[in-house]
Design a protein around this nucleic acid. Structure first.
Lengths: 240, 240
DNA sequence: CAAACCTGTGACAGAATTGTGACGAAAATC
DNA sequence: GATTTTCGTCACAATTCTGTCACAGGTTTG
């Protein structure tokens, strides 16, 4: 899992950023001033840094410079609109990109992914794999082994992503619902439908990918298991 | 060790570029005006030239033309976004690729490496090719195989350029919008229209280029695929 | 055993997304 | 200054996605 360090003295904004990134699968670490930021950066070695310019104790530029001196961790600057100087200065110091406040969560995510992709981390291509099942989030499709890929809808992708992330564990319906639909809007009926549809596609993927290699791995196809009264989990039953 | 000549009258920016390239292992030579640039180029015979357009004493175009007259050293142009003319003109004069300011250090490195890699193989400039589809940014037109070229508008060119650069990958609508329109001003409606228009021209190009050579490559024509809920991608489906 | 509950299934319709065509303002071109 | 090109906006059609409902089978509970 990719980890991000969010540095902003405005706690509300920092929380928004953190929430947005977490929803995208990041593990988020926070810092509210420059010195702490450097410290946490050294401790945690995150994959991405979202950095505000105006910071107490040590401003964003200094933080940026110091980090750049030691590593090339991708840095995404938070700046106010219309401050060309800040942007240019920041980029000169080695920041990878910037985003102007106010920004939408979508913009933030897009920037983060762009920066990471350029850095070679390729989160967009960070395929998840469980058994022979592969999920390509950047393309939103699954495939089994070398079989034909089958595309997923946004909700299906989120569900499978979450299940694959916790493969082998059973997740409660509530947890899944909140992860897929967000704070509100979730419903057990909806989850049942979603599981149903995803199962259908996984079965189809299985048919297509299974033909070749009847040797050892062919049977390793994960499936969504129901645990009555609790929720669902992704299991890989090897043969039997 | 590869040597690069960085030409920019903005010393701060020149230093940033130099610093970035040095970190990548280049030996960097600098020049701050056009005449000095030509002189140092003649003396040093660098492997790569990073060239700003606005220069005192002799502008970037003149420098580019002069260098091209004598050699095919890779030239990477520094331009401001939104100045299509500069880009087109520069590429027509023989520059290999361009990068728009402000750019991140990583972008610069990526472009530099691409240009160098290309230079090692063929003398071609910044033509992008996917399947049988060719985009010549210098002329702002596309063609399929040997068919009649069809010209693109600036926005269409940017979109196709971006898609071809990431051929085979699906790009999110946000990422595309940001790349085509910049930080603000993008809109899903606008993107839909742009895709539509580009698709139209690609279809036209297909009609024209398809007539000859019905052998093997005739069917290899990329098309813009839409992934609902995500975005678009350029795919080359080889027959079937 | 029956009732209550949970889960899987299928059909369906509303919502959301995307494709298409037309129009007109703004910009480029002549 | 007139004409053409470019591009954003709107309205609407087609497609895809997703929530709702009803019902069937199975399990637990009283």
């Amino acid at each position: 899992m990719l980890r991000a360090l969010v540095v902003d003295d405005d706690r509300v904004l920092a929380d928004v950023v953190a929430f947005t990134l977490r929803r995208e699968g990041f593990e988020v670490i926070q810092a509210f001033d420059g010195e702490t930021a450097l410290q946490r950066w050294a401790e945690e070695q995150p994959d991405l840094i979202v950095l505000d310019i105006n910071l107490p104790r040590l401003d964003g530029f200094a933080v940026c410079r110091e980090i750049r001196r030691q590593s090339d961790t991708p840095i995404l600057l938070l700046t106010v609109r219309d401050d060309e100087d800040d942007i240019v200065h920041g980029l000169e110091l080695g920041a990878d990109d910037y985003i102007t406040k106010p920004f939408s969560p979508r913009q933030l995510v897009a920037r983060a992914q762009t920066v990471l992709r350029r850095a070679g981390k390729k989160p967009a291509r960070a395929v998840r794999q469980v058994g022979q099942l592969t999920l390509d989030p950047g393309r939103r499709e699954i495939r089994l082994g070398q079989g034909e890929p089958i595309s997923l809808t946004p909700l299906e992708r989120r569900l499978l992503d979450y299940l694959m992330l916790n493969a082998g564990y059973v997740l409660t319906a509530e947890a899944i619902i909140e992860h897929v639909w967000g704070q509100e809007g979730g419903d057990r009926d909806m989850l049942r439908q979603l599981v149903r549809r995803l199962r259908g596609k996984m079965a189809r993927v299985e048919d297509q990918g299974d033909s070749s290699a009847g040797d050892l791995d062919s049977a390793v196809s994960p499936r969504i298991e129901t645990v009555p009264g609790l929720g669902y989990g992704l299991v890989v039953d090897s043969g039997s």
